[in-house]
Design a protein around this nucleic acid. Structure first.
Lengths: 328, 328
DNA sequence: CTGAAAGCGCTTACAG
DNA sequence: CTGAAAGCGCTTACAG
C-alpha cells in the first residue's frame, strides 16, 4: 500500500479510500491510484485490516463430521447466511470428541472469528465463558450446551420420537425395540424419553432388553438389531434413533424373511426407493443451520436479550416401513 | 499482552516466549507470566501473529456444494490433512457459478490463506496469476483449471466411462443412452468421450438422440430419461454421468415395467439396497481430497517442481442393475 | 479533496 | 535468561 501511494504520488489514506470505495477522492486521483494498484499487483491484506478493525468477518462452525449427510446441508445453510452477511465460514469436525471440540473452538477464537456455531460433542462448555466475555457470539445447534447459557436451536427430539413410536403402536405393535445413540448425547436421551412416553401412554410395558443405546457404528447396531429380532419373543417393530442407525437397521432387515416395521429418526436420500420405503421422523437440517446462523448474526448486530432456545418441529413421513403390521 | 507483561513485571518478549512455549524462560518468570495470563483472561490474537509471520495456517477449499454427498467426504479428507499440518479450513460453495468462484477465491486470497484447493466452476483461471506470483499455493481437484498450469488431481473419467459402457455392451446391449452433465464441464465431456469410445470399439453406432447433456436438475434428467425410453426403438440401457443423474434415473426406472440396465458414474450410499442394486463406476472422493491437500502442503513446504497432474483410477462395482439383459 | 501520525497486537532481530 | 525498538499492513482520528 505504501508502494502504491508512492507510485501514485498520494498519501496512504487516499489509497485506503480508493480501495474501500470511500467518498471524497477526485476522479483524477482515483484514476492514478487504480493505475498504481494494477501496475504493482496490489492486493489488500485483510489480516492487517482485521487487526485494526476488530472484526474478521468470519464465523466458525464446529460440527461432528462434515461428511455426515445430516450435517452437510446444515453447514451449507450456515454458509449461505454467512455469505449474505459478508462473512466467510471456517468449518471444523470434532469427530464427536469433546477434547477435539474444545481445541478447535479455541483455535477459532484465537483467530478472532466474530461468532461461532457449535454442535456440541462435549457436555461442559464452561471453557467458553472467557471467550463470551471477550465478545465472541456463540450459538449452539442440534444439541444444547452444557453448564452455560446460550442461544440454541434444536429439533424437538422428544416429540418426534413420541410421535414415531405412537405411529408404530397405532399400527398394532406392542413389542417395539429402540436402537439409539449413546445416552450421554442429549438428543439420544430425549428420543428415548419420547419412545418411553409413547409406550407408557399406550399402557405398554417396555422390556429392558428392547432398548439399546451406544455407539452408532455399524457393527454394534447390527449385532443389537439381530439380538432384538431373535429369542422367543422378538420385537415386531423398531425405532431407529438416527440416520446412521436407520441405514444399518435397513440392511439387517433386508436380510430377514419376516417383515419388521421400522420408523427412523432423520430423513435420508432414497428412503422412498427402498422396499419397503422407509417411514421417518424428519428433521430439517438446513433450517436448523439457518436459524442458528440467524440467531448468531442478531447477536453480532448487537441484540442483547437473554439467550433463546428454539425447538423446530419434526415431521412424520409415512412411506411403508412404519405401517407394516406385526408379524411373528 | 502489554497488560500481561506489566502485571507480571516482565517485557513483552518474555510473554511472547511463554505463550509460544519457547526456550529460555526461568521457571519462576514463567509462573508469574502464566498467572497474569489467567488473571487477565489473556487470549493471543492470531490476526496480529499472522500479520507479522506472513503465514495464516489456514487453507481455503472452494467447491460446488458442500451439501453434495460427493463433495462432503472430499472436504472432510482435506480437513484431516490440514489438521495434521496445523491448519484450519475455510470452505466455500461456488454453486457452480464461475463469478461466485472467482469472488470466493479472491476473498480467500485477501485473507491470505496459505493455500487454496479449488474445484473449478469456471474455465478461465487466469485471474489467479497475480495470486500465484504473490506466493499462494493452489491445487485443483476433480476438474482441471482453465488456461493456467497448476497441480491437479482428477479421477480418470474417460477410462471409467469407457469401462462402464463396455460393461453394458458385454451384457448384450446395443442401444445405450448417455445422460450427463453440461458439456462445458470437463469431466462431463470426458465421460461422454469414454462412452463414445467404448461404443466405437464395439463397432456400435451412436444415435444422436441417445445422448443428453445439460443441467442435472431432476426435471430435465427425468424428462430426458423418459424420452430415451420411449419411441419405436428405445434404449435398453443407460449410462448416468454422475451421482445426481443416477438418483433421478433410478426413480424413473422404478416406475417402469420394462427392465432397463443402468450403470452410474459415482457410488452412493444405499446403492446396494435398491432393487435392482445399482452398478456404478466408483470414484474415491476422500482420496481425491487427500491427494490434492497433500500436493498443496508439498508446495507450502517449498517443493517447486513443475505442476503435477494425478489421475486416480475408478472402480467398477457390479451390483445388478448393470448386468440386466436387454429387454424390449 | 487530501495526508501525516498514531496504533491495532503481535514477532523479529538484536543487544545485554 | 531477558527486554527495548522496529515493523508487519492496514485504519482511525484529526488537521488542513
Amino acid at each position: 500500500m505504501k508502494d502504491v501511494a508512492a507510485r501514485a504520488g498520494v498519501g496512504l489514506k487516499t489509497v485506503s479510500r480508493v480501495v474501500n470505495g470511500e467518498e471524497g477522492v477526485s476522479a483524477d486521483t482515483e484514476h492514478r491510484v487504480r493505475e498504481a494498484i494494477t501496475a504493482l499487483g496490489f492486493r489488500r491484506n485483510d489480516s492487517a485490516r482485521t487487526l485494526r478493525k476488530g472484526r474478521t468477518a468470519s464465523i466458525g462452525l464446529v460440527l461432528e463430521d462434515l461428511a455426515d449427510p445430516f450435517y452437510a446441508p446444515l453447514s451449507r445453510a450456515v454458509e449461505e447466511v454467512a455469505r449474505a452477511h459478508g462473512a466467510l465460514l471456517i468449518n471444523g469436525s470434532s469427530a464427536e470428541d469433546p477434547d477435539r471440540e474444545r481445541e478447535l473452538v479455541l483455535a477459532l477464537c484465537a483467530r478472532r472469528v466474530d461468532g461461532l456455531i457449535i454442535i456440541p460433542a462435549g457436555d461442559d462448555h464452561r471453557y467458553l465463558t472467557p471467550e463470551i466475555e471477550a465478545g465472541v457470539a456463540i450459538s449452539f445447534v442440534d444439541r444444547a450446551p452444557g453448564l452455560i447459557d446460550a442461544d440454541v436451536v434444536l429439533s424437538d427430539s422428544f416429540e418426534g420420537a413420541r410421535e414415531g413410536t405412537a405411529h408404530l403402536i397405532a399400527h398394532g405393535h406392542r413389542r417395539i425395540g429402540f436402537v439409539g445413540d449413546q445416552p450421554q448425547i442429549q438428543t439420544a436421551a430425549e428420543r428415548l424419553r419420547g419412545y418411553r412416553t409413547a409406550m407408557a401412554e399406550a399402557g405398554l410395558p417396555v422390556d429392558g432388553s428392547w432398548v439399546s443405546l451406544g455407539p452408532t457404528n455399524p457393527e454394534r447396531v447390527r449385532a443389537e438389531t439381530v439380538r432384538l429380532l431373535s429369542g422367543p419373543e422378538p420385537v415386531t417393530a423398531l425405532f431407529a434413533g438416527n440416520n446412521r442407525v436407520t441405514v444399518t437397521v435397513v440392511r439387517v432387515l433386508a436380510a430377514q424373511t419376516r417383515g419388521v416395521a421400522l420408523v427412523g429418526f432423520d430423513d435420508f436420500e432414497l428412503a422412498d426407493l427402498l422396499s419397503p420405503p422407509v417411514t421417518v421422523v424428519a428433521q430439517d437440517p438446513a433450517q436448523l443451520g439457518r436459524s442458528a446462523a440467524e440467531l448468531l448474526f442478531r447477536r453480532l448486530e448487537g441484540v442483547d436479550d437473554p439467550p433463546r432456545q428454539l425447538a423446530l418441529p419434526t415431521r412424520l413421513i409415512a412411506r411403508g416401513s412404519g405401517e407394516l403390521p406385526p408379524e411373528v
